[in-house]
């Protein structure tokens, strides 16, 4: 509980500084049979360090693809993606793995926990390959899952699994936390607690959080909001004041 309490005490509104994500004219298309589908059509975007960014858009707008390319688990066709000074689009497969290993934390919509590892082990699995991991128990305490550390994912609710997923992403103390529809599979109350957790991570560690969602209400907690439609950013806005997650309604 110590870290959680510490988070509450040190909660501050972070001020955007220099851009940690700098994307220029990013394009990506998929070929399915004879059909070529353009998913991203020249994306330009910047997200400052320690910001919370939200990418809003309907299904098929390309937001997950954009997120995957930023995270180095997919590649763009052209354009440039620079994250924390690293030109992601120019990295070899091996260097890309290193990039993910050092800089990126992922939170997925369906949690993607390893089913036959316990809660603690699912976090250790990432702590093991990190250079400066946080203490597993402390992270579990922060996400209020310490008492369930010996349980397997199938013994947890969806919200609990997502908490573990966040703990797993946070334990490596990444610069950038990428969350793909983190509340997409959760009910309202659980979703709010998860968003609260993400906000705490941002405030406590200064971690940049980039979230993909179709839920427009979540935009209120972000510093920077991007609206994506058919592979293009159609609107970009900056919130001067952000709303605490527990006050978000939808």
């Amino acid at each position: 509980m110590m870290i959680a309490q510490q988070w509450e005490k040190t909660a501050v509104t972070p001020r955007p500084t220099q851009a940690i994500i700098d994307i220029t004219d990013l394009r990506k298309s998929y070929r399915v049979g004879e059909v070529q589908t353009a998913v991203l059509q020249g994306i330009d975007m910047q997200v400052g360090a320690a910001e919370i960014g939200v990418i809003l858009g309907p299904s098929g707008s390309g937001k997950t693809t954009l997120m995957n390319i930023i995270g180095g688990i997919d590649r763009g066709d052209s354009g440039s993606v620079i994250v924390d000074g690293v030109e992601v689009h120019q990295l070899s497969d091996e260097r890309l793995t290193d990039y993910r290993r050092r800089h990126i934390g992922f939170v997925f919509q369906f949690y993607n926990l390893v089913p036959n590892l316990t809660v603690a082990e699912n976090i250790e699995v990432v702590a093991n390959i990190s250079q400066t991991p946080l203490n597993v128990d402390e992270v579990l305490t922060a996400v209020a899952m310490l008492d369930k550390k010996h349980r397997f994912p199938r013994e947890l609710s969806g919200g609990e699994q997502q908490r573990v997923s966040i703990a797993r992403a946070v334990v490596k103390n990444p610069k950038l936390l990428l969350c793909d529809e983190p509340t997409g599979a959760l009910d309202f109350e659980t979703s709010r607690s998860i968003l609260h957790l993400l906000q705490q991570v941002n405030q406590t560690y200064g971690t940049t959080v980039l979230m993909v969602t179709h839920n427009t209400a979540i935009a209120a907690m972000a510093h920077h909001v991007f609206r994506l439609r058919s592979g293009e950013i159609v609107e970009e806005s900056v919130n001067q004041t952000t709303v605490p997650a527990e006050r978000i309604e939808w």
Binding site: V114, I129, R168
Partner: peptide, 9 residues
């Protein structure tokens, strides 16, 4: 997932 989390091939 493991690959995405930074595990090498």
């Amino acid at each position: 997932t493991l690959y995405a989390l930074g595990y090498r091939k």
